[in-house]
């Protein structure tokens, strides 16, 4: 039980994607114009990630090593098509707003990365906990980032007006440049926090997580 709990909670803070584990940047930047878009995207990712981890982990002894990437892709793509269908049936406006980024969940490296790095080596219950935790962390990050950008860019959060009419919306935040800069500053904040904690523990400062595909198991696997 303890191990499952550990896998579940690591995605919420210690390895929270995409802030600590820099994975899945494109949707993070693209759909966080508003908080509810971020939340919707996050929920879709939780669904796909948890079930893909479940399937990969259950089949891990069956899948031959040579075609495992192909198998992961088929599993992930199936789930993504499933999400597309369900979203069209029950949340069509969200489907329209997220646009092309719903089918693109399949190439979100968080899905294949977790399949390769975790689910293909661990038993089912741990893999599901990992997928659920990572998915929740991703949802949390996207919602927070979306809320931040929405507050500054529109003066609202989840569509609720926060400020009076005197507020001049900082539209920069909802345009593409604002997305990049905002995420950059949040990541810098995380790095500063990490180093502050390490300093208190008497450890040397480190540079933040890079993006040399180290965190994404798939690319690393391919390089072998």
């Amino acid at each position: 039980m303890g191990a499952t709990w550990k896998e579940l909670t690591k995605g919420l803070w210690r390895e929270i994607p995409p802030f600590r584990l820099v994975l899945g940047l494109c949707p993070t930047l693209a759909v966080t114009k508003t908080a509810d878009n971020g939340l919707g995207m996050g929920l879709a990712v939780i669904f796909v990630l948890t079930l893909s981890n479940l399937a990969v982990s259950a089949l891990r002894r069956l899948i031959p090593a040579k075609v495992r990437i192909a198998c992961f892709i088929v599993i992930a793509a199936t789930l993504v098509v499933g999400v597309e269908l369900l979203m069209q049936a029950f949340a069509y406006p969200l489907y329209q707003r997220l646009g092309i980024f719903v089918p693109l969940i399949v190439v979100n490296c968080i899905i294949l990365g977790r399949a390769e790095a975790f689910a293909s080596r661990n038993p089912v219950h741990l893999s599901v906990a990992d997928g659920l935790g990572m998915g929740l962390g991703f949802t949390l990050s996207l919602t927070l980032l979306g809320a931040l950008r929405e507050v500054l860019g529109y003066g609202t959060v989840f569509g609720l007006c926060l400020f009076g009419p005197g507020f001049k919306p900082f539209s920069f935040m909802i345009e593409a440049p604002g997305a990049f800069v905002c995420l950059g500053l949040v990541l810098a904040g995380m790095n500063a926090l990490t180093n502050w904690q390490r300093k208190r523990q008497g450890l040397a400062a480190v540079e933040g997580p890079g993006h040399d595909c180290k965190s994404c198991g798939l690319c690393a696997a391919d390089k072998k």
């Binding site: 089949l59 069956l62 899948i63 031959p64 040579k66 075609v67 192909a70 198998c71 088929v74 599993i75």
Partner: peptide, 8 residues
């Protein structure tokens, strides 16, 4: 390989 892939 073929069997597993086509099964999935």
């Amino acid at each position: 390989m073929i069997i597993v892939l086509s099964l999935i």
